[in-house]
């Protein structure tokens, strides 16, 4: 564990908490993509299957359980409790266009051809693109509430901090995982346009609004 890794995990946790606060306080999931949330739930479940096979640390187990349970809770809030506020019409991204290619790629490019390893690889590829339905929703509506912007910023920062963690680990421990690094870089790149808008608009007190 190094400072970048810890900051990345905390940023990830903050993102999830911000999202839950937004939905709970406003009693609404408007502006949030249920499709992205479903993809994230698939990511956590398929990645953390090793919870039942391997014990790594209390921290590791705790965080995995938090990520799985909060993503299920988010889906419950969106599709059951605050269903009426869900922006169904704008959330029209077809997730099978992400699920199928990620799974095929995981079958082709993986570290070992075993079920757990393929599902881990699939989750890494899927996580890289799981935010696309959310970004698509923001681009369709042309704006995002500020708390949604903070959520997206924290979520994007998490993988960017992991990139620093991987650079650190490469030099400090000689450790690297090309699949994670490649997918993490793609994931971070997808947020760049949003980061730019966040820094130039939201941090200056303006609403995140896309140019018409």
């Amino acid at each position: 564990m190094n400072i970048f890794r810890l900051a990345g995990d905390l940023s990830h946790l903050l993102a999830i908490i911000l999202l839950l606060i937004k939905i709970w306080k406003t009693r609404s999931c408007a502006g949030i993509s249920g499709k992205s949330q479903i993809l994230f739930a698939i990511v956590y479940v398929s990645r953390y299957l090793d919870l039942v096979t391997t014990f790594i640390s209390v921290y590791n187990t705790f965080m995995k359980l938090v990520f799985i349970s909060t993503s299920v809770a988010t889906i419950y809030l969106m599709y059951v409790k605050f269903k009426a506020t869900y922006d169904h019409n704008h959330d029209s991204f077809r997730i099978e266009f992400l699920l199928v290619p990620c799974f095929l790629l995981a079958l082709l490019i993986n570290n070992a051809f075993t079920p757990l390893e393929i599902l881990w690889t699939f989750s890494i590829y899927l996580e890289a693109v799981a935010i696309l339905p959310q970004l698509f929703l923001v681009s369709k509506t042309g704006e995002a509430e500020s708390i949604t912007s903070h959520y997206l910023f924290a979520l994007g920062s998490y993988r960017a901090l992991y990139l620093l963690n991987w650079i650190y680990r490469y030099y400090a421990e000689g450790h690297y995982d090309l699949i994670a690094i490649f997918a993490g870089a793609i994931q971070t790149i997808l947020y760049c346009d949003f980061f730019y808008l966040y820094i130039t608009k939201v941090l200056k007190g303006k609403k995140l609004q896309l140019p018409a």
Binding site: H12, T53, I56, N60, F67, A112
Partner: peptide, 10 residues
Amino acid sequence: HVPTSEKDEL
């Protein structure tokens, strides 16, 4: 490569 059993990252 790192086997799944040794992956400590989240």
